[in-house]
């Protein structure tokens, strides 16, 4: 029984974390462009980043 007092809150907490993470991902438009993400990996970073564009 005493194990349950720890384990159930832990399980619930972890579930809530997952739920919170999913909400965060939705709010941050993580699912907006699934195809684009796989392509962006291939874009080469420019060696020098122009200063005036770092807005």
């Amino acid at each position: 029984m005493s194990g349950l007092a720890v384990l159930i809150p832990v399980a619930l907490f972890m579930g809530l974390c997952g739920l919170g993470f999913f909400f965060w991902a939705m709010r941050n438009d993580q699912f907006e462009d699934l195809e684009g993400a796989s392509h962006r990996v291939l874009i080469d970073d420019e060696e020098v980043i122009p200063d005036d564009k770092t807005v």
């Binding site: 462009d33 684009g36 807005v55």
Partner: peptide, 9 residues
């Protein structure tokens, strides 16, 4: 100011 491509759409 910024330009963002959405490749899926």
């Amino acid at each position: 100011d910024s330009a963002r491509v959405n490749f899926s759409t």
